[in-house]
Design a protein around this nucleic acid. Structure first.
Lengths: 165, 165
DNA sequence: ACTTGTTACTATGATAATCATAGTTATACA
DNA sequence: TGTATAACTATGATTATCATAGTAACAAGT
């Protein structure tokens, strides 16, 4: 990641967000964390990032307060990476990206990579930010994902993720 | 920008969005375009990007169909960069980033960099995605920005932007 | 005791991206 | 003829990222 220009970072919220998540690897890492993939190796496999890259980005996210590194076992100590509240609130950004790409970058005739269901009412939410059935604003924890079984999605599905909370 | 991993880009909408806007400069450029800053030099000044960087990123965005390069005068031919519909639809992503950063990355006691008003009802929208007054979903064109006159915002305000449509 | 396996990294040298600085092209205007 | 403006391009240095390999700490099997 390039060095941020002080002028922009100081006052502009877009620049501030860009400092946190303005790079490909960080975005892919966040995606996995939202899917419940929390371990170093698993994230590495899912994102295709090299270990040094992952180490660097996870450390950054940790320093920014977006994720927490917490031990899930002793002897040997192993850590997992989990979203903080600040991190979970990035869901709106990721979800907006997902909606945009599914709307504008999807190959013709291809189904949505993942369809999401509103837990509260059981309705498919499509590509909306509010539930088309009950009208509520959709946030992290409100949705349950079901990957389409085309192509690589099947590979991802094996991770038992998409519980989204 | 690093080369995208084929596996991810092929099926995941987050990866697809990351390919389009997963880098700092692109995000800053998009910010300016949304503010109505459409000329090469002006974007350069506002973002702090080097000309080669700008050339590269504008070309990318053009190839992706996010922006259009159109002449605004002949002899000599000069071009401006304007958002396509596909580009304008990225507003939801940028706006989510703005909201997140203002919520979590703002310095204590600092006012919002820009306050937005819902044109339809004249109400301040705060940091919401739907108007807190009339409940409508907020999209590009619905808002009018007023920069706070602290720090660098004054500099930006001179560009006569924030009309947001 | 020794080998194999797992998780989470670190080290190294090569390649690619980005940087700062300067220069170019085409034209208008004085 | 000389200066100014807009939109870039060129060059060499610096930094980031890459592919490949290796390490540390422990568990479990033979």
């Amino acid at each position: 990641m390039p060095k941020p220009t002080v002028i922009d970072t100081e006052f502009c919220p877009i620049a501030k967000s860009a400092d946190v998540m303005g790079d490909r690897w960080t975005l892919l890492i966040l995606r996995e964390l939202f899917f419940g993939v929390t371990r170093f190796e698993a994230i590495q496999v899912q994102t295709g990032a090299r270990p040094q890259m992952l180490t660097d980005r996870l450390r950054r996210l940790q320093h920014m307060g977006v994720i927490l590194r917490s031990p899930y076992q002793q002897a040997p100590v192993r850590h997992e990476y989990v979203l903080t509240d600040k991190g979970k609130d990035l869901f709106s950004v990721l979800y907006a990206m997902r909606n945009w790409a599914e709307r504008w970058q999807r190959d013709e005739g291809t189904p949505l990579a993942i369809t999401y269901t509103h837990r509260a009412c059981g309705h498919d939410v499509g590509l909306e930010t509010t539930c088309p059935n009950c009208g509520k604003i959709l946030e992290y924890g409100d949705l349950k994902g079901t990957p389409s079984l085309h192509g690589q999605s099947a590979r991802i599905a094996k991770t038992d993720a998409f519980n989204m909370r």
